[in-house]
């Protein structure tokens, strides 16, 4: 797609006047970030794809109500975040089994299994296990911490903008982030050495 220097907000102006090309540009910019945000929030790629579609549908339906007082990214992440929280609420259960919870087969708790499958000489295998452990660990964060962590760590949204998205004070955002980092550190303790060995 041809490079376009227009800002997100300028593209929204164009979309408001029915410019399909502008929508495609905005879609190119946000399709992967929004999809990944939703995957990390709800853990199901298929549902995340549906929700991404919902988010873009809302963008189109409510384009006229975007008044350019806020940044587009704030607006769209607020829509995505609400969609994710709705989905989590509808799901009505935790995405992953609790780390402390024993398995249905009566095996060791997940946290012990993760620990037992700690770093091995084969770095690829460790990396694979780590990815799984990360998925579990992120999924175990309470939604209010998870959204802050995912938005800041993976989406690159600043703390101030996260505060705008969530409509909470900046201090609250940072506090949730600290809790999230602490919880992840606990969960991923076994991988400390691996982390140190990373370039």
């Amino acid at each position: 797609m041809k490079h376009d220097n227009r800002t997100d907000e300028e593209l929204m102006y164009a979309i408001q006047s029915g410019d399909t090309h502008a929508f495609r540009l905005l879609f190119e910019r946000y399709r992967t970030p929004l999809y990944h945000f939703l995957v990390r929030m709800i853990g199901h790629p298929e549902t995340a794809a549906d929700l991404t579609q919902d988010v873009f549908a809302k963008l189109l339906r409510n384009a006229a109500s975007f008044h350019h007082r806020s940044r587009f990214s704030t607006w769209i992440y607020a829509i995505a975040r609400n969609a994710a929280l709705d989905a989590i609420r509808r799901a009505g259960h935790r995405r992953h089994p609790s780390l402390d919870q024993s398995t249905s087969e009566g095996g060791a708790p997940l946290v012990e299994r993760i620990a037992a499958s700690g770093p091995q000489p084969d770095r690829d295998a460790v990396a694979r296990r780590l990815r799984e452990a990360l998925t579990q660990a992120i999924g175990q964060l309470p939604p209010e911490q998870r959204e802050v962590f995912v938005l800041r760590e993976y989406q690159g949204v600043s703390f101030q903008e996260i505060a705008d998205v969530l409509q909470v004070p900046l201090g609250t955002v940072k506090s949730r982030m600290r809790y999230a980092l602490t919880a992840l550190r606990q969960t991923l303790k076994e991988y400390e050495d691996y982390a140190r060995s990373l370039p």
Binding site: T32, A49, T52, L60, L130, I138, R185, Y194
Partner: peptide, 28 residues
């Protein structure tokens, strides 16, 4: 804090499915 961030950076995801793109662009 940095260690957690280093580990988190290894959490890669697959790109969105093509089917999603088609549906959204058609809708637009």
């Amino acid at each position: 804090m940095q260690q957690v961030r280093q580990l988190a950076a290894l959490h890669h995801l697959a790109p969105p499915p093509l089917s999603m793109d088609a549906a959204i662009l058609d809708m637009a």
